[in-house]
Design a binder for these strands. Structure first.
Length: 352
DNA sequence: TAAGCGTGGGG
DNA sequence: TCCCCAAGCTT
């Protein structure tokens, strides 16, 4: 069999094994739905996205609805999904599309790629799936599947490795079903050609697979290991006044940007964190009532919450929220955990 | 180019 | 428990 016969076999497999997903229901596909789903799916599991996608479309049915919504509402809808710059960029891009493209996603590569949050992968995904254009959508699945299929030993986390895989995909993609081709490779990567211990016995492409032939299915693709996290102590203050707690809005850039949090300081050690919090709030720290270890991709927060008696509110954006109120604003993930615990404690009429 | 940016599932 | 990782983009 010739090496380039595999796309036909792949598409035949896809016709029988295609996953049913909320954003795949329409024919032709709604470009806005493709767009939102692709952004949500970045670095995020399909199962997690399903619920978020459906709630999103109820809240923001069209690009116009999204563009007109306040940022707080957009971030709240994204709360818990992670990588919040995706939500802010989606919101920004919706406004760009309304202002510059009459509310319709542009179909031209350069214009589409100039929108906030839309990079090379997402351009390929939208153009191929929504508009039938012959362009690969090179995501982690394609990198992994094609590196095995062609026996690519290059590091796929680097620019050169991505170039190599992209060239192979461009050569293989069929002009009549480009969107199906991309989705088929993603489905295969998600269910069969999975990262660890691929299910080669269920794979339709073993006859074409170089890694299978050479016994390298467990060792390909080659990826550079990730850097270890920094570990920090996070001291949080619970400051209550007439049933409301003091919150701070995080800066518009950086980690958990524009999300609300309990007053918090980060330091290398717990004692230093506690004393810095005391300094920030200009008050004494009461007992530590809650502890939690929160692991991010690049940081670990060892959190401790202290009851604080009173506060002189420092500069920046601060507000007082009751439990009912804080359920309507976007909370930073680790603080949402603390807020849940606090609400339960208050509901039981326990003193904090 | 490499680092920064979240979260939850599964081995 | 620990570690890897899932449909990337931006700076």
């Amino acid at each position: 069999m010739k090496r380039n016969d595999w796309p036909e076999t792949l598409l035949a497999w896809f016709d029988g094994s295609r996953r049913a997903l909320p954003w795949r229901e329409e024919h032709p596909r709604n470009p806005y739905h493709v767009w939102v789903s692709e952004i949500m799916l970045q670095q995020t599991r399909t199962e997690t996205v399903k619920g978020y996608f459906q709630r999103w479309m109820e809240q923001f049915p069209t690009i116009r609805d999204l563009a007109q919504a306040p940022e707080e509402q957009v971030l709240r809808a994204w709360q818990g999904l992670g990588y919040y710059s995706r939500a802010r960029n989606l919101h920004k891009a919706a406004r760009q599309v309304m202002a510059e493209w009459g509310g319709q996603l542009p179909r031209e590569r350069k214009a589409l790629g100039s929108l906030a949050g839309i990079g090379a992968y997402t351009v390929g995904a939208i153009l191929s799936m929504a508009f039938g254009e012959k362009i690969p959508a090179v995501d982690g699945n394609l990198l992994r599947v094609l590196s095995r299929l062609y026996g690519v030993e290059e590091d796929i986390s680097g620019t050169q490795g991505k170039k190599t895989i992209t060239a192979l995909a461009e050569e293989a993609i069929p002009g009549d079903r480009p969107g199906d081709f991309n989705e088929a490779l993603m489905d295969l990567g998600a269910e069969v050609c999975i990262p660890r211990h691929p299910r080669c016995e269920a794979c339709p492409l073993t006859a074409f697979c170089q890694a299978w032939k050479e016994g390298k299915t467990e060792t390909l693709p080659v990826k550079k290991p990730k850097a270890p996290q920094k570990e920090l102590a996070a001291a949080c203050g619970l400051v209550v006044r007439e049933g409301r707690y003091l919150f701070h809005k995080r800066p518009a850039k950086g980690m958990l940007a524009s999300m609300w949090e309990f007053p918090m300081v980060l330091e290398p050690g717990a004692e230093k964190a506690r004393s810095s919090l005391v300094k920030l709030l200009e008050t004494e720290a009461g007992p530590a009532v809650w502890q939690h270890r929160h692991v991010f991709t690049h940081q670990i927060w060892n959190m401790t919450a202290y009851v604080m008696e009173r506060a002189e509110v420092p500069g920046g954006e601060w507000s007082w929220f009751s439990p009912e109120e804080w359920e309507k604003v976007p909370l930073a993930g680790p603080h949402a955990k603390l807020a849940d615990w606090l609400k339960k404690t208050v509901d039981r009429n326990e003193k904090v």
